[in-house]
Simulated assay, not measured.
Amino acid sequence: MTSQQIPQKHPEHPETGELPLELRPPRHRVSSAAIRYWTTRALLGWLVLTAVQVVWLVLGRDHLGWRIPILVATLVLGAAHVMVMPRWRYAVHRWESTAEAVYTQSGWFDQERRIAPISRIQTVDSERGPLEQIFGLSNVTVTTASAAGPLKINGLDRDTAQRLVDDLTSTTQATHGDAT
């Protein structure tokens, strides 16, 4: 048996007797409405940039030779970003809450996977901006004493976010720990 085939036994915590938590992929996807939200948000940003370039093109008719290729590049990059990024993010973004921990995975180019033990949670917040409200989405932020910052779960439907906040609040109040 090679070292890759030998199951690794994790030692129990000396004081609590608990097994350590393992960083693993979370089970739940965010809401599919997040795809439309991320698409709309990206599209609005690219439309603003394109509008500025069109105004620049119309008002400054000199030097058209290099302004038109810049506008074309903006349109091509914008279209690629709007078509690829939302679906890619949806494939990556995941979350899970158990009795022991909260797991998150996010990003698209720069992907991050995090875990926060329930005993370390200090606050649980939810928020939604105007555009997120239109799409029926909410974000949940789980704050711990970690130097890495809070865990953020973006793109949850409102009901799921509210249930998660309620469950985490109840669980953290019932959990003994120092939350540091």
Rank of each mutant, 00 (worst) to 15 (best):
F109L: 14
L77Q: 08
V102T: 15
Q8C: 07
G65Q: 15
S138Y: 03
T40D: 07
R163Q: 14
T123W: 03
P14R: 15
V52P: 03
L77A: 10
V82Q: 05
P14H: 06
T175R: 13
S3T: 12
S106G: 11
Q4L: 12
R158L: 11
G155H: 01
S119H: 08
I121A: 02
T74R: 09
N154T: 11
Q133C: 03
L49W: 07
H81L: 09
Y103A: 02
T169F: 01
V142N: 00
I118P: 00
A33V: 13
L23I: 14
M83L: 12
R114Y: 05
P86W: 05
K9D: 06
P14K: 15
G107L: 10
S126W: 09
L44E: 07
Y90I: 09
K9M: 05
V92D: 12
G45K: 06
L57A: 14
P26K: 02
L21N: 04
L19K: 14
S170M: 14
I118N: 00
P117A: 12
A99Q: 13
I153L: 04
Y37T: 00
V55S: 15
Q111G: 09
S32W: 04
R128H: 14
P25I: 13
K9C: 05
H28Y: 07
A147D: 13
R128G: 11
P14D: 12
F135L: 04
R94N: 01
D159Q: 10
T2P: 06
A42V: 07
I68N: 01
G60P: 09
I70Q: 06
W46Y: 13
G129S: 05
L44I: 14
G129E: 04
V30D: 00
V52Q: 05
V54E: 02
P150W: 01
A116Q: 02
R128W: 08
A73Q: 03
P130H: 04
I115V: 15
V58S: 04
V55G: 15
P117I: 07
D167K: 15
G149H: 13
T172E: 02
E15G: 12
R113A: 09
F135D: 00
M1W: 02
P117C: 08
G129N: 09
Q162I: 10
L49V: 10
A51K: 11
V140M: 01
I121V: 15
L47I: 14
R89P: 00
V30F: 01
V30A: 02
Q133S: 08
W38I: 01
T143S: 09
V30K: 00
R158P: 01
Y37W: 09
V55F: 15
M85S: 13
N139V: 11
S106A: 10
H28W: 04
S119A: 10
P7Y: 08
V140A: 00
T171Y: 00
R128A: 13
M1A: 03
T39W: 11
D159W: 04
I70M: 08
M85L: 11
G177S: 08
L59I: 06
Y103C: 02
T141G: 02
L156T: 01
A79R: 08
T123G: 04
V124W: 00
V82M: 09
I115S: 03
